[in-house]
Design a protein around this nucleic acid. Structure first.
Length: 856
RNA sequence: GCGGAAGUGGCGAAAUUGGCAGACGCACUAGCCUUAGGAGCUAGCGGAGCAAUCCAUGGGGGUUCAAGUCCCCCCUUCCGCACCA
């Protein structure tokens, strides 16, 4: 809308800019047009330009159609950093793309009768406009959209490469099924037994043939690599460590007594094989094969096991699995402990997890809290086999720590045959060796991490490039036939099973090996495949020969700074690390890890809760931008809290930032002619006290902000510092008017103010840069360098304390010697009144900091 | 239960190495201005007190000339993991 169209106000001359009034809508629209027309403005230079590089990356959004405040905050942080690094002379890559496959598009298709592709591409167009309106410095020439064939063909290409290397495989297995999504989910997508998208929908277990990526092959490297990522938050590293869940222990075979179904070998997994002489029972998961075999022989047992499973299911549905009481049933059978030949009862217990370890444990009540609790409940034997070192010889039980005693440091084995007297760790090694020699056990490492199930029974995803031939079985699609195109105009169903199965033209194909009839795989890939490597595509987005050129990756990777929400700590960030290692082993890249530094920003909350439609506390970025402008909106997102903390959105705060920008505009425009007449001949003129004070404030501000950009990122205090500088300018307005501040100094301060503002309020900075007569873009102008001499105070305030309490403040020349400071303190009337008649026991003078007089 | 982060005015917050607690902003109060604006300007704004002064960074101890900051114990909130053998 042009100003003259605005209702109710006769303002015929508004087209002639009012240079005292800040009008962000007008300024921002004008600069957006200029920037949109300049494809080179935010383009990185080629990889062989010889300049140091900086790859600044924000997590790509799902194109829902609407940016939310979390995005605004994420991108405001990344944009400030990218712009700053450009001004510091780096060759900056700052790209953006779209995580465009996924279920919401199918749901929207069903609801609105639109094709997922149409819906998705329209959303992308809308969100791109929102981003441009925000003034984000993305190079749109490198844009990546994961649902387009020129991207997803490389997902297929990687799939084939991984299949060749045995990293992609198909197997029948128990998988997580979300009835709401009507598809399988990866373990990482199941949270508290529910779907990650449908928090109230319980995930079912189904047995299906599925494609998996062998992420477990890299489990150890994914784990040890975390120690080499000091630039990642400790929290994320800890979460990944827990998720990988490495556990070193021992497998031991217990052999059951003979029954109708014969002798069974029960392999247990334990991390404390040193306690095995204290094992007083063997515990099986209800789902364990041996449990099933015993149940066949024993109807009563079968009924009890069924009840146990039913109880578990009910608890899981009620959401309180984990709080259910430990409970078990004796099978009536016994097993032999291979270490001492002891005969121990076999139980089935509800707390034994079928899918961890071997689904069977040895129970050592004396040295495990859960086993202790269980043994007490059922009256099972409790036998101490570990004692505190030094107390082991003492017969008296009272000399020993209470049971259960679970420590293994400073503890030794007792009553453990030939192993008695050994300390725990040494005993574990010896016992493993013995078990291996005698072939009833071995050392073993288990992981909580499971292989990544990537098959999805959905339409809107990357087709898996495999066919099934009647004679040749599973046959990969040849590389030169890629991409396997996702058919268009497909009827979306939510009946279970991929909608692609109902598209005969897609399904029916020929076998690449024999030319005979064959059927295509109709499942599509998990969308986390798309986002596992998208940031490699940015560096070579148009390459039709390869996913990306190796030499470009060698220059740009690893990412220097990755910025996003902590909600991706496990899913996306562990898959991305895995993919990088796979690509390295395929010879595509040199780096072991995708990103050197990771930053997880806090949530945007309002009224104490995360913004969400259901809570009705959502603030729309469009509305904020329309009301206050993009500069004020993004600057508020940086000003209201440090970026790693949660941010409480307060609209009055945005208004406050907007008022600040108005003041910047007003005073800069007022002195623009002065700046204009001096900018070409930069001179520092600190001749008068007034100009000296201004220049001092300026250089202190430059120093502060430059330091913060180097890592601390407390942009809230950076903006506060700029506000202080502007407050100083306003206070000096009269002095600048009167010429008390020389024009050169005025020009110097304003010129640098605009440079400091550029990363935070780019539209206003561009406008003022031009209005003050500067040519070229402010965003490629060198970042100012703080002059320590100009920044130095010549007189400083020294607080004087008596007995640690502040009494007064004295002014002394900066750099004064200790006794000068002390004398000044003693000369102060308030201080001397306190000291009067008392004895000074001690005088503490910290040069430049304070004086403390300790009186008796 | 385990792991992580945090707790400072009415609110968002600041205090980078232990050295003037509350910068900067919001809200509020009083006054000014009038092109009546979601504007601008001046002053005030942790608590108690007329004041001098005293009290105050979740609570309690400690170290120190000096503690929001370091150490010990406890409380609360948020986030993650949770029968992992």
């Amino acid at each position: 809308m042009s100003p003259s169209q605005q209702s109710g106000k006769a303002a015929p001359n508004n087209d002639n800019q009012d240079t005292t009034r800040y009008t962000p809508a007008e300024i921002e629209a004008r600069w957006q047009t200029v920037w949109d027309a300049d494809a080179q403005l935010y383009a990185a230079e080629p990889h062989d330009c010889g300049k140091p590089k900086f790859y600044c990356l924000e997590m790509l959004p799902y194109p829902s159609g609407q940016l939310h405040m979390g995005h605004v905050r994420n991108y405001a942080i990344g944009d400030a950093l990218a712009r700053h690094m450009w001004m510091r002379g780096y060759n900056v890559l700052h790209p953006m793309g779209w995580d465009a496959f996924g279920l919401p598009a199918e749901n929207a298709a069903l609801k609105n009768n639109r094709q997922p592709e149409e819906w998705t591409l329209a959303n992308i167009a809308a969100m791109r406009v929102q981003m441009q309106r925000m003034g984000l410095s993305y190079d749109w020439a490198t844009e990546v959209t994961t649902c387009l064939p020129d991207y997803y063909r490389w997902n297929q290409w990687f799939f084939l490469k991984m299949y060749e290397k045995g990293l992609a495989y198909r197997k029948q297995s128990k998988v997580n099924w979300c009835p709401e999504c009507a598809t399988v989910l990866a373990n990482e997508q199941v949270i508290d037994g529910c779907c990650w998208r449908h928090e109230d929908t319980l995930v079912e277990q189904r047995n299906l043939e599925q494609w998996f990526f062998r992420i477990t092959q890299y489990a150890d490297e994914l784990l040890s690599g975390l120690d080499k990522l000091p630039g990642w938050p400790e929290k994320v590293r800890t979460m990944q460590r827990n998720w990988i869940g490495r556990s070193d222990g021992t497998l031991v075979d217990f052999t059951s007594e003979s029954g109708e179904t014969g002798v069974h070998v029960i392999t247990v997994f334990t991390t404390r094989v040193d306690t095995i002489f204290g094992a007083t029972s063997v515990q099986l998961a209800p789902e364990h094969a041996v449990t099933k075999a015993f149940a066949k022989e024993d109807k009563k047992l079968a009924a009890e096991v069924d009840a146990m499973l039913a109880q578990q299911k009910a608890a899981r549905e009620a959401g309180d699995i984990g709080t259910i009481e430990k409970h078990g049933v004796f099978t009536g059978k016994y097993a032999i402990n291979p270490f001492n030949g002891e005969r121990v009862p076999i139980w089935v217990a509800n707390y034994i997890l079928a899918d961890y370890g071997t689904g069977a444990i040895m129970s050592v009540p004396a040295h495990d809290e859960r086993d202790f609790e269980f043994a007490q409940k059922y009256g099972l034997a409790i036998k101490r086999v570990i004692a505190k070192r030094g107390a082991a010889e003492q017969e008296d039980e009272k000399a020993q720590p209470a049971l259960p005693f679970t420590e293994e440091d400073d503890a030794v084995l007792v009553d453990s045959g030939e192993f008695s007297g050994l300390d725990c760790v040494a005993a574990q090694k010896k016992m493993q060796t013995l078990a291996e020699q005698k072939k009833f056990g071995k050392a073993n490492t288990t992981y909580r991490l499971k292989d990544w199930g990537v098959s999805r029974q959905r339409y809107w995803g990357t087709p898996i490039p495999m066919v099934y031939c009647e004679t040749h079985g599973i046959v990969p699609v040849p590389e030169d036939e890629l991409p396997v195109l996702l058919p268009k105009q497909v009827q979306i169903t939510q009946q279970g099973g991929s909608p692609l199965a109902n598209v005969p033209e897609f399904v029916n194909t020929t076998c690449p090996k024999c030319g005979g009839p064959a059927k295509r795989e109709t499942d599509t890939m998990d969308t986390f495949v798309d986002s596992s490597w998208y940031f490699y595509r940015y560096i070579d987005a148009k390459n039709s020969e390869r996913p990306f050129a190796k030499e470009k990756a060698a220059y740009w990777f690893p990412i220097d700074q990755y910025i996003g929400g902590v909600e991706h700590a496990i899913l996306h960030l562990i898959y991305s690390r895995y993919w990088t290692k796979v690509m390295r082993d395929l010879g595509l890249t040199m780096n072991d890890e995708p990103a050197t530094r990771l930053f997880t920003q806090g949530m945007v909350i309002r009224n104490g809760a995360k913004m969400s439609k259901s809570k009705g506390n959502v603030v729309s970025p469009d509305e904020m931008i329309a009301r206050y402008g993009a500069d004020a909106t993004r600057m508020y997102a940086l000003f209201a809290a440090p970026p790693d903390r949660d941010l409480e959105w307060q609209e009055d705060g945005v208004a406050g930032v907007s008022r600040f920008l108005s003041r910047v505009y007003r005073i800069t425009m007022k002195f623009a002619p002065v700046v204009k007449s001096h900018y070409a001949k930069p001179q520092i003129n600190a001749a008068t006290p007034a100009s000296q004070a201004l220049l001092r404030k300026l250089h202190q501000t430059i120093a502060k902000i430059t330091l913060d950009f180097s890592g601390r990122w407390h942009f809230n205090t950076c903006i506060a510092a700029i506000m202080e500088l502007v407050n100083a300018l306003m206070a000096a307005e009269g002095a600048m008017d009167s010429g008390e501040v020389p024009e050169q100094a005025v020009a110097e301060v304003f010129r640098n103010l605009i440079l400091l503002l550029a990363p935070f309020a780019p539209f206003l900075a561009a406008e003022l840069w031009q209005q003050t007569g500067h040519e070229g873009t402010v965003f490629r102008t060198a970042w100012p360098v703080a002059d320590a001499e100009l920044a130095a105070e010549d007189e400083i305030e020294i607080p004087v304390q008596v007995n640690g309490k502040l009494v007064n403040v004295v002014r002394v020349p900066a750099g004064s010697a200790e006794d000068v400071v002390k004398d000044a303190a003693m000369a102060d009337a308030k201080v001397s009144a306190r000291v009067e008649g008392k004895q000074i026991v001690k005088t503490v003078v910290v040069p430049g900091k304070l004086v403390n007089l300790v009186l008796k």
